[in-house]
């Protein structure tokens, strides 16, 4: 078995020190080593985006990286984005607009949408669709995902008040 490598990663504000196999994918490090199972694995060809997390503020597909490549980095996963009672506007948008059904693509979809809004706070429908091209959803037909992102953009621009019950 290959020698293990020591890494230091900050995930959702918490610093972790672990010995990992060099071939361990970042997504498996998050799910199996740290137990952060909100980040999902939907494919083995980097096509689905279910594994999307933020690495130093940028959306990345965590199945396309080894854990060792994240050494010294700052990661945010869906668990660190917001919590019940303190949701990120994008999470709130997905809830308000029924942007999810089975929920499997949702963490990756939300992380990709946050990344979009960080870069482009008022995207057009076409820009939203284009930005989410790397994230597959088999349930929603994307209709309400688009609306969820529009809701979040409006919310972040102060155009929408507090949501009814969260």
């Amino acid at each position: 078995m290959p020698d293990k490598v020591q890494i230091k990663v900050t995930v959702n504000g918490v610093e972790h020190h672990n010995e990992v196999e060099p071939r361990l994918l970042l997504v498996h490090y998050l799910r199996e080593t740290l137990g952060l199972t909100g980040t999902h694995v939907g494919c083995d060809t980097s096509q689905c985006g279910a594994c999307t997390v933020h690495l130093d503020g940028q959306a990345v597909k965590s199945c396309t990286m080894f854990a060792v490549q994240a050494d010294g980095c700052n990661l945010t996963t869906i668990e660190g984005l917001g919590s019940a009672g303190n949701l990120h506007p994008v999470q709130e948008g997905f809830w308000e607009m029924h942007g999810l059904q089975c929920g499997f693509c949702t963490p990756g979809m939300i992380m990709a949408a946050v990344d979009l809004l960080n870069k482009n706070p008022q995207p057009s429908e076409a820009e939203i669709r284009h930005a989410l091209e790397g994230n597959l959803c088999r349930c929603t037909g994307y209709h309400n995902i688009v609306r969820a992102v529009q809701y979040a953009a409006d919310k972040m621009a102060g155009k929408i008040g507090a949501a009814a019950d969260d």
Binding site: T39, G82, L87, Q91, W95, L100, G103, F104, T106, D166
Partner: peptide, 13 residues
């Protein structure tokens, strides 16, 4: 809006 969503949007499904 759905009661199942809070667990899914926070990664706790």
């Amino acid at each position: 809006k759905r009661v199942e969503d809070p667990r899914f949007i926070t990664g706790t499904g």
